[in-house]
Measured scan of single mutants.
Amino acid sequence: GSLMYASIFGNVSAIIQRLYSGTARYHTQMLRVREFIRFHQIPNPLRQRLEEYFQHAWSYTNGIDMNAVLKGFPECLQADICLHLNRSLLQHCKPFRGATKGCLRALAMKFKTTHAPPGDTLVHAGDLLTALYFISRGSIEILRGDVVVAILGKNDIFGEPLNLYARPGKSNGDVRALTYCDLHKIHRDDLLEVLDMYPEFSDHFWSSLEITFNLRDTNMIPGSPGSTELEGGFSRQRKRKLSFRRRTDKDTEQPGEVSALGPGRAGAGPSSRGRPGGPWGESPSSGPSSPESSEDEGPGRSSSPLRLVPFSSPRPPGEPPGGEPLMEDCEKSSDTCNPLSGAFSGVSNIFSFWGDSRGRQYQELPRCPAPTPSLLNIPLSSPGRRPRGDVESRLDALQRQLNRLETRLSADMATVLQLLQRQMTLVPPAYSAVTTPGPGPTSTSPLLPVSPLPTLTLDSLSQVSQFMACEELPPGAPELPQEGPTRRLSLPGQLGALTSQPLHRHGSDPGS
């Protein structure tokens, strides 16, 4: 009898404990919600809404976190579960008819179910419309201010047509639940991603989709105040780019002037030289400038040598048109050559190039014969006009050509200096018209024969001689050997007369 009593008592207590286990969990969670309300000092109306929603959600799901349970299964099984949970929507909604099984599984994985109690606001006026909503159960109302403009029910759709707008718009009203509602919502990016994977279904979906109420604000059109608020930074940046392009296009129409201050000032006329910023005076940081632009901040801005204009002085008759350009485009679109090309026009420029290279940067340069637009006047290309890779490749080509020119210049200078040193070592320090008596009659020769300089066969020296023939050397430049009979510069000019005159010897006659 005691054994029977113990078994009955144990079973009854276990049954009672299981009955009250759900209630215990409910009270535990309710205590957490109330502690949250007390800690954050939530006001009474919002506090009442929180408690009511918790009670309804507990009775609806029995305190089970559906998302946590669903995430515990593998992905393939999750797709089947989501397809079952959203079967009513996918079967009865017209846009989803005719979709393949794979497309429906992908869509079912992207849908999220939302449960809303009465009085809950789903979308506020001015919120971004980031999702498309399908009503599965219940009814909602749409308000503009305090005026109800629409009441939607089961199988209705609200949001915005995503295929017509590249960016999400703003809501033009509040969406509030009238009863307990079940909503299926899919985010904008998720829907577009699935439709991109199934393009054959995309056309059918957009053609058959009928949005019951379009929440997009109709005033959000390009150029409206609301649109400016939504895309303020983007609009200002776009206007700045367009104004920069218009100014650079105007600059290219004036090829007669070359400016070292950047493309923003290349198009300024002579009357605007004294102004601080020219056409860019209202925004000094709008356009890029070269490193020399920092010198323009000092006094005497109108007389600054940074602004270059072609000189009108005539060229000498024998002067060549100019050196070879550094870039391939210089032959086609440049009416002034790079300062480095002028360094190779003569030997005198070679000796004085490194010492006063900055001073020569603004000297007169030889002109190319074609009066085409200036290379320095070409505006900086924006990322939309020329690819970045093209600019980098041009810079690399320019750097390689500069290296080759520097190597060639160093070799030419070394060769010229070597020839000058050899000339100085071969010439005796001094010569006299009267020579010392020699031991015999073989001493009648006034000077030792001097062998002429070897013929220069280097390509670089031939180019130097060509430049010497075309360029007029300055007075202080050293002379180079030329073709024809060679003669030492330090010898007297009348050596031929010395050989014809008898030598005057000093000596005593033994017979006297």
Score class of each variant (00 low, 15 high):
133 Y>V: 05
409 L>E: 03
242 L>E: 12
204 H>P: 07
179 T>C: 05
431 Y>E: 11
482 Q>N: 13
181 C>E: 01
440 G>P: 13
500 S>T: 10
391 V>C: 09
458 L>S: 12
471 E>W: 11
220 M>W: 04
470 C>P: 08
295 E>C: 11
173 G>C: 14
504 H>P: 09
168 P>T: 10
371 P>L: 09
250 K>E: 10
357 S>N: 07
423 Q>E: 06
442 T>H: 13
260 A>R: 09
209 L>R: 02
263 P>N: 15
128 L>Y: 10
401 Q>G: 07
251 D>C: 06
175 V>E: 02
256 G>H: 13
165 Y>W: 13
172 N>D: 06
450 V>K: 01
317 P>A: 15
262 G>Y: 10
214 N>G: 02
136 S>H: 06
265 R>I: 11
480 L>E: 06
281 G>P: 11
164 L>N: 08
374 S>I: 04
243 S>M: 13
147 V>F: 10
398 L>R: 02
460 S>Y: 06
260 A>L: 12
500 S>L: 13
387 P>A: 08
254 Q>T: 08
159 G>A: 03
265 R>G: 12
338 N>E: 15
362 Y>A: 10
339 P>W: 07
172 N>G: 10
137 R>G: 10
377 N>I: 01
281 G>N: 12
171 S>C: 06
227 S>R: 09
187 H>M: 06
243 S>D: 15
129 L>W: 01
207 S>N: 15
170 K>G: 01
218 T>K: 09
208 S>I: 03
404 R>P: 03
214 N>A: 04
314 P>D: 14
364 E>V: 07
398 L>G: 03
497 A>G: 10
379 P>Q: 06
506 H>A: 11
314 P>L: 15
165 Y>I: 04
317 P>G: 15
324 E>S: 14
324 E>G: 13
372 T>W: 11
240 R>Y: 10
285 S>K: 11
385 R>G: 09
281 G>C: 01
368 C>H: 07
404 R>V: 05
227 S>L: 12
492 P>L: 04
409 L>K: 04
405 L>S: 04
353 F>P: 08
429 P>L: 11
504 H>R: 08
304 S>I: 03
470 C>H: 09
316 P>N: 13
494 Q>E: 05
323 G>S: 06
498 L>S: 11
172 N>L: 11
369 P>A: 08
452 P>N: 08
211 I>F: 04
451 S>L: 11
160 E>D: 04
499 T>A: 11
411 A>N: 04
238 R>M: 09
253 E>A: 10
363 Q>T: 13
448 L>V: 07
469 A>M: 09
230 L>H: 13
319 E>Y: 12
368 C>W: 09
261 L>F: 08
347 V>E: 11
153 G>Y: 11
146 D>E: 10
399 Q>N: 05
438 G>A: 11
238 R>F: 12
340 L>A: 13
143 L>V: 10
394 R>P: 12
290 S>R: 05
434 V>H: 15
260 A>N: 11
252 T>S: 13
303 S>H: 04
444 T>Y: 14
442 T>Q: 12
253 E>H: 15
157 I>D: 02
242 L>D: 09
385 R>V: 13
327 M>H: 13
482 Q>V: 08
186 I>V: 08
213 F>Y: 12
509 D>P: 12
411 A>F: 04
314 P>M: 07
450 V>D: 05
267 G>V: 11
193 E>Y: 06
174 D>V: 07
154 K>A: 11
510 P>Q: 09
468 M>Q: 11
426 L>N: 08
190 D>N: 03
380 L>E: 10
160 E>H: 03
194 V>H: 03
211 I>K: 03
348 S>H: 08
459 D>N: 13
131 A>G: 12
146 D>S: 07
357 S>P: 06
234 F>P: 10
239 K>G: 11
313 S>C: 07
183 L>W: 01
319 E>A: 07
283 S>K: 06
134 F>I: 06
271 S>D: 04
293 S>K: 04
229 E>L: 09
397 A>V: 08
310 P>K: 08
243 S>N: 11
234 F>T: 11
229 E>G: 09
391 V>M: 15
392 E>L: 14
381 S>F: 09
299 P>V: 05
221 I>V: 14
165 Y>S: 10
134 F>P: 03
185 K>P: 03
268 A>M: 09
430 A>L: 12
357 S>H: 03
240 R>G: 08
480 L>N: 10
257 E>H: 04
198 Y>T: 01
188 R>M: 10
209 L>Y: 03
472 E>L: 08
310 P>V: 03
188 R>S: 06
190 D>K: 01
370 A>N: 12
141 E>M: 05
340 L>T: 15
177 A>S: 10
252 T>I: 11
398 L>I: 05
440 G>M: 07
405 L>P: 01
373 P>N: 13
239 K>I: 09
337 C>L: 09
257 E>W: 10
326 L>D: 08
189 D>F: 04
482 Q>W: 12
478 P>V: 11
232 G>V: 10
208 S>L: 07
419 L>P: 05
334 S>L: 07
290 S>C: 15
240 R>S: 10
130 T>H: 14
302 S>I: 08
238 R>E: 12
385 R>T: 12
474 P>V: 09
415 T>H: 06
406 E>T: 08
343 A>E: 10
285 S>R: 09
446 P>E: 06
327 M>I: 13
369 P>D: 10
235 S>R: 11
255 P>D: 11
155 N>E: 11
504 H>Q: 10
183 L>S: 01
454 P>C: 09
194 V>S: 02
195 L>H: 03
328 E>T: 12
201 F>A: 07
181 C>V: 09
371 P>D: 08
186 I>A: 02
308 L>D: 14
140 I>P: 02
190 D>V: 03
500 S>N: 08
480 L>Y: 15
329 D>L: 14
399 Q>T: 04
500 S>A: 08
241 K>V: 14
129 L>I: 13
216 R>I: 03
198 Y>L: 02
502 P>C: 13
211 I>L: 11
254 Q>W: 13
304 S>Q: 15
200 E>R: 04
461 L>H: 14
160 E>A: 03
127 D>L: 02
441 P>R: 09
163 N>G: 09
329 D>S: 07
139 S>M: 11
175 V>M: 01
494 Q>F: 15
323 G>N: 15
496 G>C: 05
310 P>I: 15
163 N>A: 07
371 P>R: 09
180 Y>D: 11
262 G>K: 14
381 S>L: 08
445 S>Q: 12
264 G>K: 10
340 L>E: 04
413 M>R: 03
440 G>V: 13
230 L>F: 07
464 V>A: 06
369 P>S: 09
248 T>A: 10
209 L>E: 02
252 T>F: 13
210 E>H: 10
392 E>N: 15
421 Q>G: 10
156 D>E: 03
216 R>L: 03
233 G>Y: 11
236 R>F: 08
322 G>I: 12
373 P>F: 09
238 R>V: 11
209 L>P: 01
142 I>T: 02
333 S>C: 15
317 P>R: 13
283 S>R: 06
192 L>D: 03
301 R>V: 08
164 L>S: 09
418 Q>A: 12
338 N>R: 12
422 R>G: 06
491 L>H: 11
383 P>Y: 15
332 K>E: 13
481 P>Q: 07
172 N>C: 12
464 V>C: 15
409 L>C: 06
131 A>T: 06
511 G>Q: 13
315 R>G: 15
192 L>I: 09
236 R>H: 07
167 R>K: 10
258 V>P: 12
197 M>P: 02
313 S>R: 11
241 K>I: 13
409 L>Y: 03
244 F>Y: 14
177 A>R: 03
337 C>R: 08
478 P>R: 08
218 T>M: 12
249 D>T: 12
133 Y>T: 07
346 G>D: 11
404 R>M: 03
430 A>K: 11
471 E>A: 08
454 P>V: 08
271 S>G: 12
473 L>Y: 15
184 H>C: 09
239 K>V: 11
192 L>H: 11
319 E>G: 08
177 A>H: 01
307 R>Q: 11
373 P>R: 08
470 C>M: 11
508 S>Q: 06
137 R>S: 12
511 G>W: 01
493 G>M: 05
424 M>E: 07
394 R>A: 09
312 S>Y: 11
137 R>K: 13
481 P>R: 08
357 S>D: 08
259 S>N: 15
365 L>K: 11
259 S>W: 10
456 L>M: 07
376 L>H: 12
238 R>Q: 13
263 P>T: 10
